[in-house]
Write a protein that binds this DNA or RNA. Structure first.
Lengths: 209, 209
DNA sequence: GTATGTGAAGTTATTCACAGCG
DNA sequence: CGCTGTGAATAACTTCACATAC
């Protein structure tokens, strides 16, 4: 199977899963590639090709079973199990992430938050209490967390990334600076909300400056 | 100039800008394409090619002037001016966005927030007071906002998107369901934090399930 | 009839490699 | 001499179009 999966395909798999969750909530039990594609910005062939990278999930003449496909996508993305995740930095964004319930039901358990600021340590964010950074390694060890969310100021990011990697973290969701160097085998996904806004204004400026 | 710009290039421009902001804060005045590329995950040729799409910003044998390039990128992305932005939904995420100071200095003025929940109306989030949805059209009209952030539950998203478009919004940063239909000419950028985590676990599952 | 899965074709984006310039 | 800017080559991704299965 997995010869090599294009990154855009992986991102679309998440979009399919999100949309299937909505369909499931609305008790829709079947969906065709064109229905799934229509509401998003890609073609039906792209949907079929993406899924075909991992196997055969549809029935010809019918389409895809919503629940079956949700299960298949979770298996592909690895989220049928629950992943322990640590959050570094206890700012506003971390606050929002820790209070969001959607992660748990999608396979992510944000079970600890850390900060260097004594002012923030001890605060309750959602279900977790902010801990001092000193505890980081012990918590990662104890929980077996392989994924971390890095939401700290740019100047602190690289040192903390190094520390996380040293502690065994292999996947890093990075809300800090885009320049983050990690050893091979460590995966980094860079999230930048400003970049999304800039994408919009880029296009808006093209048409009317 | 702008024949057609690849979407991946637009996203990278934002990444360059973020990194240049860091360099500027550290009083670095020059940077070469390879230095800029090294810290991120793309090659030097990609950096040069992306910039060359818009003009000639570097000096051969020297590299790019950090401040000049920041200015050029802002001009390209349209963020030398300030953009009024309205936020729809006053949940935790909106809370975090409205309290984040980085937007203002990057050209985005989150100047109003709306919710349908009477419980939330009147609350102070950062600099803005949550307003009832009824005010939406008037505020968009008054402020001239062309960009909106949609952070509401999936089932409410499409109706609100329609309403925003009717009120004159042309750029939509969408934190809700990926299935959002908008008329041509309206740009949608879909942000999904769960998708970033899934990207990580996808790769982690490949190597060690 | 209808919708999948997939070779083949087409399109788009990245990388190479070097001429050109400071 | 170093680094940009860019044609040319390569690689990656998407779309077409249809045989195949239900």
């Amino acid at each position: 199977m997995n010869e090599h999966i294009p990154t855009p395909s992986v991102h679309r798999l998440s979009a399919y899963l999100r949309q299937l969750e909505v369909l499931a909530a609305a008790h829709t039990d079947h969906v065709s590639s064109s229905e799934l594609a229509a509401s998003m910005n890609f073609g039906a062939a792209t949907v079929r090709r993406d899924l075909a990278l991992f196997g055969q999930f549809g029935r010809r003449g019918v389409g895809y079973d919503v629940f079956e496909l949700i299960g298949a996508l979770r298996a592909i993305l690895g989220t049928q199990r629950q992943w322990p995740v640590v959050v570094i930095g206890a700012g506003e964004l971390s606050h929002a992430l820790l209070r969001y319930n959607g992660f748990r039901m999608r396979g992510f358990d944000l079970l600890a938050a850390f900060d260097i600021d004594p002012e923030k340590i001890g605060r309750q964010l959602g279900n977790v209490t902010v801990q001092p950074l000193e505890e980081l390694e012990a918590v990662i060890e104890r929980t077996g967390a392989r994924v971390a969310i890095l939401a700290v100021p740019a100047q602190a990011a690289q040192a903390l990334a190094d520390r996380l990697v040293a502690a065994g973290i292999e996947g890093l969701l990075n809300f800090s600076t885009p320049a983050l160097v990690t050893p091979p085998g460590v995966h980094v996904s860079h999230a930048d909300i400003t970049a999304h806004l800039e994408e919009l204004t880029f296009h808006l400026s093209e048409t009317r400056p």
